[in-house]
């Protein structure tokens, strides 16, 4: 298999139709009043917001902007507002700095230097706000995780990935960018380097060690059962780098599942029960 950017091409109009139909159908079947989502100003949440608005109308979509002192960036706020305005989405801005400070103060073992644990606390705090609004206003939480992030586990467990639906989860990051342009997300949002905003200066590609254009092709190769040697050769990458991605993909399965239990009875949650969703 040739690993070129073309393999990631889809019929974007068809993808848009399928995703908006999926969102609309889910909201209807759940008898929800609409959708709430976190609006960071990044490409994923902007695209999820745009598709939600196209699906059910912007007036039924609430974008929560949840900035905090450490990673505050006026450009992100500007971008989030730009998307909200363009797609007619309602917004609410809540500065979560004081909540984070209170949490930090209340945790006896809190360690300021542990960037990751502290960063994850931010993602999980945002989740608390989203679910409060969802409960209170009978809304569906729409996640914005993409396939690249979910495959390599580049997200916070029970944090940014916590949602009721994740309409972009079968699209690699570079595919989300293409879809974003197709549905009219402004270029300045699509083109900026992605960041989970867990600490200042954090960028996804630097942290992962690969540009998404390459990572997505590695993941596409793995999805299509290609051997790591083949992928490395196709993309001119060192084999151990491809191996590392593959290991990471498998090692992160725990983040994508319900907690594992040990089987004790006939029918077990997580193993046996298969109950359909809407």
């Amino acid at each position: 298999m040739k690993l070129t950017q073309q393999v990631l091409d889809l019929n974007w109009e068809e993808v848009k139709t399928k995703i908006t139909r999926f969102i609309r159908d889910y909201v209807e079947k759940a008898n929800a009043n609409g959708i709430v989502l976190g609006l960071s100003g990044g490409v994923d949440s902007s695209t999820a917001a745009a598709l939600s608005a196209l699906a059910i109308g912007g007036s039924k979509v609430l974008g929560l902007m949840l900035p905090e002192k450490e990673t505050y960036n006026p450009l992100d706020i500007k971008h989030a507002k730009l998307v909200a305005e363009k797609f007619g989405i309602k917004t609410e801005t809540i500065d979560i700095t004081s909540t984070l400070e209170a949490l930090q103060k209340s945790i006896p073992i809190f360690d300021l230097k542990d960037k990751l644990s502290k960063g994850n606390l931010k993602a999980r705090t945002r989740m608390l706000y989203l679910y409060y609004y969802a409960n209170k206003l009978n809304l569906i939480v729409c996640g914005s995780s993409d396939k690249s992030e979910v495959m390599i586990g580049y997200f916070t467990k029970w944090g940014d990935a916590a949602a009721d639906i994740a309409p972009l989860m079968d699209l690699y990051k570079t595919q989300v960018r293409k879809l974003a342009r197709h549905v009219g997300v402004p270029d300045e949002i699509v083109d900026k380097p992605p960041s989970p905003m867990l600490w200042p200066g954090q960028t996804a590609e630097e942290e992962i060690g690969l540009k998404y254009e390459i990572l997505d092709l590695v993941l596409y190769g793995l999805e299509h059962f290609m051997k790591t040697e083949q992928i490395a050769e196709e993309l001119g990458l060192p084999k151990d780098l491809v191996e590392k991605v593959k290991k990471r993909w498998k090692a992160m399965e725990h983040k994508r599942r319900l907690p594992l239990t040990t089987k004790l009875q006939y029918r077990t949650v997580g193993f046996d029960f298969r109950i359909p969703l809407p």
Binding site: K18, R21, F22, D25, Y26, P276, L277, P278
Partner: peptide, 8 residues
């Protein structure tokens, strides 16, 4: 036709 459990 229709959507069932995410399948279209």
């Amino acid at each position: 036709v229709g959507i069932e459990n995410g399948l279209q």
